[in-house]
């Protein structure tokens, strides 16, 4: 498998060697160029991302409210004490985690299946690819409204099920199906995007590998298992990270379709933060929720990065 060296994926970010240590003089100029090339992003990032994050951090330790004549004051860890004894928060966190744990593998798997289906030479494959991709370019606000029609008790989905003799549930109001319904429509909306990412990965796998393996009589499954799957390792990392980010941020669908119900079964951390901060005017408490959320996702992404880096080294 001499190809494996050619197919070596790019080295992970942290070990990339920038241009070799430059000759004297160019070092300073590199620093200067780097400084001004970074400036626009740094300024915008600081103003619109880091400052709000810092504000969230400060607000979380106050009693700030959205609408109030009282001056804001610091209250220490009060908001956190309240948060950790708030059942809705733990439910929301659990829902967010469940959503992520289900969506990441299922969406990635379905996307890979779709990618394999359209990574063939057949008439109409462009059309199929386009249709599978349509939901991605449609606004989530619009899609959430459409899916309300699909999920309502006498709606499109149950009408379809009735044709095959199944009496469908009230999808969004039944505690047993609500989160699943949200998961399904979220995957439906997003799977096309990751299909394309997988497709890109598939297209970099050398055809000679498949030819060689055919010569030695490998089955399709063996080809997938020993050529396709290993060849997609980099793509897997990318997909894992992008789906995880999107899944943790689950908000729009919930806000439009269920408002966290029934009985908190679709409440998520981001939904709870927005609802508390805006509708309930409890800015400080919402900031505490956000802050805890930052810490959790940061931890998750560090773990993910650690795991993916580990594999790189292992190679």
């Amino acid at each position: 498998m001499s190809q494996s060296t050619m197919m070596r994926p790019p080295v992970p970010p942290d070990v990339v060697a920038p241009l070799k240590a430059p000759r004297s003089g160019r070092g300073r100029s590199q620093r200067a160029v780097a400084a001004w090339m970074l400036t626009p992003a740094a300024v915008l990032g600081t103003v619109f991302l880091l400052v709000p994050i810092a504000l969230t951090f400060v607000l979380a330790f106050t009693n700030a409210r959205l609408v109030s004549p009282e001056p804001m004051k610091f209250v220490g860890f009060d908001n956190f004490t309240r948060l950790f004894s708030d059942g809705t928060f733990w439910t929301s966190l659990a829902n967010t985690v469940i959503f992520t744990i289900v969506v990441v593998p299922v969406q990635a798997g379905l996307a890979l299946g779709l990618a394999l289906l359209i990574n063939v030479k057949m008439r109409g494959v462009n059309f199929f690819r386009t249709v599978y991709f349509l939901p991605v370019v449609t606004s989530m606000v619009v899609i959430s409204m459409l899916w309300l029609f699909i999920y309502q008790p006498n709606g499109l989905l149950n009408g379809l099920l009735a044709k095959i003799g199944v009496h469908g549930p009230d999808w969004l109001s039944d505690t047993r199906t609500a989160l699943g319904a949200i998961i399904l429509m979220s995957i439906w909306q997003n799977v096309g995007f990751h299909m394309v990412i997988w497709l890109s990965g598939l297209q970099t796998i050398s055809p000679s590998l498949y030819e060689a393996s055919s010569l030695v009589g490998a089955t399709t499954w063996q080809q997938f298992r020993f050529i396709t799957w290993p060849g997609l390792r980099q793509t897997r990392t990318f997909i894992l990270i992008t789906i995880t980010i999107a899944a943790f941020g689950l908000f729009t669908q919930v806000n439009i379709m269920t408002q966290g119900g029934p009985l908190d079964h679709t409440s998520t951390v981001v939904y709870q933060a927005v609802h508390t901060g805006f509708a309930q005017q409890q800015t400080a408490y919402a900031s505490a929720i956000s802050l805890v959320f930052f810490v959790i996702v940061l931890a998750v992404s560090l773990v993910q990065r650690y795991l993916t880096r580990d594999k790189d080294v292992a190679r």
Partner: peptide
């Protein structure tokens, strides 16, 4: 405004069992 959001959630929960 707070009472309203609380009532909304509570009555939704009650309706749902």
């Amino acid at each position: 405004p707070f009472i309203a959001t609380e009532f909304t959630k509570t009555s939704q929960d009650i309706l749902n069992g």
